[in-house]
């Protein structure tokens, strides 16, 4: 048996590949966020990406938030009735959304809608030599392509999360008033009395981290497709890279959610 075929060698090779890939992704992140003068053209590209990542995600975010808020109200009502604490329905729905569900669900929806798209776009640009062409024109592809997309995720995900919070709370209110005859005052007073600045801060910090993480992974996997095992797999390579980016970033968001929750609670 040749040395290269031993299980330990293969394991070592996989480990080295993972280390090298992580190192490349780390360097890429530094290159994306390093300070550099922003031109008017750069701002225009950022606004264009904000429209794509943010504005065009609003419909799906609003619909998802409405139903999540409504389901939460149903579920919490069923539980709170058993303990005679129905007046806490508003705060239960609000706190669940603001601290946990809105940041995570918003990030997962944005990954599915915009993360997959930017990953595929970068991968196609790489395999089609468009990124090489940018470099040959002395245009920094990281600054030109990655920075506006990364910043758009970083800005849009917290804003979309805030929208998710509001619409979800309204969804819960609709169910609370229509199904359980709970007054608006009871529902909203519960929220204002029990929700603190720390809860809002937790939601904002989480959503900003999730936005940055998902952008980094989706953009990085697409942009660096030529350095990975799928470099010469053509369209199949692009689709597999996109799937991998969506799965990885979703899992990383869930893992980061646990870490951030344990740090901030």
């Amino acid at each position: 048996m040749r040395g290269g075929h031993l299980p330990t060698h293969r394991l070592g090779r996989i480990g080295l590949d993972i280390l090298a890939g992580t190192g490349r992704m780390g360097i890429l992140l530094v290159q994306i966020v390093r300070p550099a003068p922003t031109t008017p053209h750069g701002l225009a590209r950022l606004l264009h990406q904000l429209r794509f990542v943010g504005s065009r995600s609003m419909l799906v975010i609003n619909v998802a938030a409405l139903f999540v808020g409504m389901v939460l109200a149903l579920q919490f009502h069923d539980t709170l009735v058993r303990f005679g604490s129905i007046t806490l329905l508003g705060s239960a729905v609000g706190l669940s959304l603001v601290r946990e569900l809105a940041p995570v669900l918003t990030a997962l929806i944005v990954i599915g809608r915009a993360g997959s798209a930017v990953c595929a776009e970068m991968a196609i640009m790489r395999t089609d030599s468009q990124i090489d062409a940018l470099e040959c024109m002395a245009i920094d592809a990281r600054r030109y392509l990655l920075w506006p997309r990364f910043m758009a995720f970083l800005i849009a995900v917290p804003l979309l999360t805030a929208m998710f919070d509001v619409v979800g709370i309204v969804g819960g209110y609709c169910v609370a008033t229509a199904n359980f005859d709970l007054g608006a005052a009871t529902y909203f007073t519960g929220i204002t009395e029990n929700m603190t600045g720390h809860d809002l801060q937790m939601g904002i910090v989480k959503s900003a981290c999730f936005g940055a993480l998902s952008a980094w992974i989706c953009l990085g996997q697409g942009f660096l497709i030529h350095r990975g095992p799928l470099a010469y797999s053509g369209s199949e390579g692009v689709s597999q890279t996109t799937t991998s980016a969506v799965v990885t970033s979703s899992l990383v968001v869930l893992f980061a959610d646990y870490i951030l929750s344990s740090l901030m609670l």
Binding site: I124, M125, D128, S129, Q130, D132, A133, L134, C136
Partner: peptide, 10 residues
Amino acid sequence: VAFQGGALLN
């Protein structure tokens, strides 16, 4: 540089 496939930004 003029690339073989054009490499224009789509």
